[in-house]
Design a protein around this nucleic acid. Sequence first.
DNA 1: TAGATTGTTAATCGATTAACAATC
DNA 2: TAGATTGTTAATCGATTAACAATC
Lengths: 219, 219
Amino acid sequence: MAAGSLFDNKVSLATMERLPRYLMELYRLRAQGEKNVSSQILGEPLGIKDTQIRKDLSYFGVFGKARYGYHLDFLIESIENILGLAQNYTMAIIGLGNIGRGLTYYKSSELEKFEVKLLFDKNPELINTEIMGLVIHDVKELKKLVKKEKIDIGIIATPDEATIEIAESLVEAGVKAIYNFSHAEIGEFEEEVYIENANISHGLFKLTHYLNGNWPRKY
Amino acid sequence: MAAGSLFDNKVSLATMERLPRYLMELYRLRAQGEKNVSSQILGEPLGIKDTQIRKDLSYFGVFGKARYGYHLDFLIESIENILGLAQNYTMAIIGLGNIGRGLTYYKSSELEKFEVKLLFDKNPELINTEIMGLVIHDVKELKKLVKKEKIDIGIIATPDEATIEIAESLVEAGVKAIYNFSHAEIGEFEEEVYIENANISHGLFKLTHYLNGNWPRKY
DNA sequence: TAGATTGTTAATCGATTAACAATC
DNA sequence: TAGATTGTTAATCGATTAACAATC
């Protein structure tokens, strides 16, 4: 059975958010030459209990061996499969301000699977200029081009006012996953789309909240 | 009583993460000319139940009026106070790659309170060049300069290998809050520091996970 | 074998929500 | 007043963890 292909849907969002953290730590362990890992060793640097990890993995039918733990390569492959990292994805970035520009350049070893294929902006001064060999298209062309190129993931980095409209266009063009970096939250859609809202200032507000002594506990 | 200054520490991380979302929605309502808002109206676009909102606010002693709801200006001011947005903050950005560069330029109406004061990199080609009128310093100068300028928030956008070391230097220089955009997670410190790990690829992995049909439910 | 580590069950812990009296 | 909306209590729901038999 391919890991992750069959499982009941009692898997929580919390579990889902831990998987990438496991994966990153596993990459590190592999780079150190480890061949296997126990749930305790994996969890320690992440501040996650061993039982939690075993439970998370069991949801997906990913098991280790008593006395030995988990085979590192197998575990990495399993989590990559669960997260859908066995294949490549195409992305369109909308809004080539500072964040959009930063994201366009953004690359890393794990991100080779994500290819930025289309760029859009509505600023006439940017349209038809290039970033990394990619032409910035007029946002008016969005629906047509996104559909044509069968883009998987839309990344929104526009000003707040434009967010919802852009999201709607993306969905109409067949995009099923949106990563939203604007300050405007995108709500529910009738269509089956997954939206990840990633407002960078939210993180800053957590920091300032902490700095004001309002949070005596560590998270 | 200043909102947020006195409260027991049963406030959950979940509550804390909703506050910025409330705030953003409240700004929008204010821009529309609203003067008051009920918990139901506030929660609807966010997909949050009215009882949840009233409970969250009650932790901080922020109350509304029956039949009327919450006075918009008062509610905004209260949440701003809770989140520590009544004052300004200074930031240092370490790592002027694409993300670091994007963050340096990153501004918005709500972010006027955050002033980028210092930039650091270890690349000799970048050192002593300028971004937005700010000199990029050698990362070797970090401890000295950060201490001298009494920086509040450190933003890490370096390659993974450098992350922990940079974090330690920041803490030694007296920084109490770190926003970490690298792929390497920063764990616990002995000192009282709050660390927000904001690995951008984690969000991408959620999208790919969804795209693989592994997540039948909407979140 | 001995004992380290597993997967799972049951208990605990914590967060959300329904219910409702109070009140503007 | 009438009834919309509050703040809070109690019930529910869900996620984490402790306990432990199985096993490599």
